[in-house]
């Protein structure tokens, strides 16, 4: 395959897929260890009503408004879940189940009731994104990477997800030690003076940020898969947090790259004519990686 074909059609979706996968996998490690893995699931459901409301209020597809709407919805969901948990004395899993299904249902109904026929916003798009459509039509080949005028035509999602990934990496680097200590022993962290509640809330907000940015580009199904599968697979490879994070990044990248290639070219290899959903395939590949580590990972058993 030549650069003239690869760069405009496949490079940007592949890049966005990788960035989104890593952005979700990084906070996913901590969520997994804190037994909050399903928060990613909940967040990716509740951003739908946020995005729809933002669209109805502004009347246009604007990235900033949608991000704000989605982030607001995520915060509303966290508040509702906590409220039901505390005041209703309901266990967190069930409280989460109530809130995210209801908010998702509300989002779907709003979407169906409002006239969004003219814009690119529908339930299917929200669920499994449209990674394949994020093409870079201004590019003509590898040379375009050096061409400022062509670079200006890059899909805006590239910049958005890069900024978010940079932000998440920076936050993790800065708060690494308190985050690690409070993840493994919250009581000990509190005695050291670590503000554990703030840190925990910060982690959820960071995850929401990753989910919203990735959701915008790749749809909710990759978001859930990348929050959980690469960190879970990495957890079965090592006992050390640093190594686990590194493994999860590697697994996320592998899922994104292999999944994208299999979705785009796999059907052609076995004689088909049309590509299949890249988002779905990336999630599938991450599942295969998890299965492999569950069968062969050196630390797959719990420490006795």
């Amino acid at each position: 395959m030549s650069g003239a074909e690869f760069v405009p059609l496949s490079l940007t979706p592949l890049l966005i897929g990788c960035l989104a996968a890593v952005a979700c996998a990084l906070p996913g490690n901590f969520l997994l260890l804190r037994r909050q893995a399903l928060i990613g699931d909940a967040i990716s459901h509740v951003v739908l009503p946020g995005i729809v409301v933002a669209f109805l209020l502004t009347g246009a597809i604007s990235a900033t408004a949608m991000m704000l709407g989605a982030a607001t919805a995520a915060v509303v969901a966290v508040v509702l879940i906590e409220g039901i948990r505390r005041f209703g004395r309901i266990e967190p899993g069930a409280a989460m189940g109530v809130v995210f299904t209801a908010m998702f249902a509300g989002g779907v109904l709003l979407l169906e009731l409002s006239d969004t026929s003219g814009v690119h916003l529908d339930v299917e798009h929200a669920l499994y994104g449209n990674l394949e459509s994020l093409v870079w039509l201004d590019a003509t080949g590898w040379g375009s990477l050096m061409d400022p005028s062509a670079l200006r035509g890059l899909p805006p999602e590239v910049f958005r997800i890069s900024v978010v990934l940079f932000l998440i990496t920076a936050l993790l680097a800065v708060f690494w030690r308190p985050l690690a200590i409070s993840t493994f022993d919250e009581g000990f962290a509190a005695t050291l003076g670590v503000p554990v509640t703030t840190l925990s809330l910060g982690l959820v907000i960071t995850s929401a940020l990753a989910a919203v940015a990735a959701f915008d580009a790749v749809g909710s199904i990759i978001v859930i898969a990348m929050f959980i599968c690469p960190p879970a697979a990495a957890r079965l490879m090592t006992n050390r947090l640093g190594a686990q994070v590194a493994w999860s990044v590697a697994f996320a990248l592998a899922s994104a790259i292999v999944g994208f290639v299999l979705a785009g070219y796999g059907p052609l290899w076995i004689g088909g004519t049309d590509a299949v959903s890249a988002a779905g395939m990336i999630a599938t590949v991450s599942g295969f990686i998890l299965t492999a580590t569950a069968l062969m990972g050196p630390k797959r058993r719990s420490v006795v």
Partner: peptide, 10 residues
């Protein structure tokens, strides 16, 4: 959930 659903989408 995510893997089965993703494969279903494929």
């Amino acid at each position: 959930l995510s893997v089965f659903f993703g494969f279903g989408i494929v």
